[in-house]
Design a protein around this nucleic acid. Structure first.
Lengths: 210, 210
DNA sequence: GTCTATAAATGGATAGAC
DNA sequence: GTCTATCCATTTATAGAC
């Protein structure tokens, strides 16, 4: 593995585990057993590392968010889709745990991040529209937008929120919990089947976390 | 106005407007036209200022959160209550915009903040239970908890989220939008009246933001 | 590519005069 | 209570040898 890649790999690890703001350029080079000078040879600094990591996340998110188009006709599809999305976000969790800080330190990333949330929002609206078109949901446009806002808040801040709790979840169970939280918003708009759907959600959740 | 109070006043202003992390002890003393040394005479540093500001917020939140007990029997009461809560949070918005950062810089505040969210959560559960007891809502305990989680996420991160948008709201309209977002979660559980309630919510929102 | 050594920049903090 | 001057710590960043 080339040094450049090792730097990226270990940085992501450290950022995710210890928090980006706690890791200095020297910490990263220590963890890699290389000198700070060497690190600076490969990257202009922590900034450049973060930007490169963001590039990856951005590219992966684009693929995920575009890949959904017209394929979320069933409730089960949305369910699985959410897992995929949350897992991708989880892989770059350091970013979502300090969004505010990072985005005003790197205004260029802020612009691109807004691009991601824009696409994410779009994907959600498409999903709701498809489900509505297929009579799975009954949702007027106005309500759909409020619901989208609600889901966007959750998808953006679930990781930041977990950090505030005393008893933190591990990755998988946090993802489960968050998917449940989002899916629980839908049954009220599913008509008759909503009641069963809700029971199914809780059952699945209990089974998975048991 | 005593220097000590001026420091607190101006610090809150600066933190809210420019962001806490951008303001150094020297910036604050400059804004006040006093020397850094003088500032350090009154407070051990930025830490001590932040702690004192947090004390205020904490005390005010305690009053608000305890004051609700048994007084939220009607939907309209919850509505007003939310406004009061959001306005208090807005007054100390610098805190909520960088929660993660602040809480791991000051672990003692993290503990106290968890106290606040715990009380907030409790107040919400009480509110839902009262509304359910009064047959305003139909909500089983399990669903109530998920709904509480959902509302907590919104109440904790509405300010952080606004920061991510290109077109930022001003204070009042952001508060309106957030109250709407929360209240829109309830109509599905209001039975027949839910439909009217929802229409009422949208109408009110449009009227206020027009 | 990688090292060591060191400079430069920032922000937090204190000593001592007035 | 308030000021000036100064120090200290941390972290980023570079120069030059190997």
């Amino acid at each position: 593995m080339k040094t450049r890649d090792r730097i990226l790999h270990v940085s992501l690890l450290l950022f995710n585990e210890e928090g980006e703001s706690h890791q200095t350029a020297v910490d990263i080079s220590n963890a890699l057993d290389i000198s700070p000078g060497n690190l600076y040879y490969h990257f202009k600094g922590k900034d450049a590392i973060i930007r490169t990591l963001f590039d990856r996340h951005d590219a992966e998110m684009k693929i995920i968010l575009n890949g959904a188009r017209g394929r979320l006709a069933q409730i089960e599809d949305s369910w699985i889709y959410l897992y995929i999305l949350l897992e991708e976000i989880y892989d770059f969790r350091f970013f979502y745990r300090d969004l505010g800080l990072l985005l005003d330190r790197y205004p260029d990333l802020a612009v691109r991040f807004r691009g991601i949330t824009g696409q994410m929002r779009h994907a959600l609206v498409d999903m709701f529209d498809e489900l509505t078109a297929g009579s799975v949901l009954r949702l007027d446009p106005r309500l759909r937008d409020v619901l989208t806002d609600q889901v966007m808040t959750t998808l953006t801040f679930w990781l930041a929120e977990d950090r505030l709790n005393t008893d933190r979840h591990d990755g998988p169970s946090l993802i489960h919990k968050t998917v449940l939280q989002v899916m629980c918003l839908l049954p009220p708009y599913m008509g008759e089947e909503g009641v069963d759907a809700l029971a199914g959600l809780f059952e699945h959740y209990d089974r998975v976390t048991a």
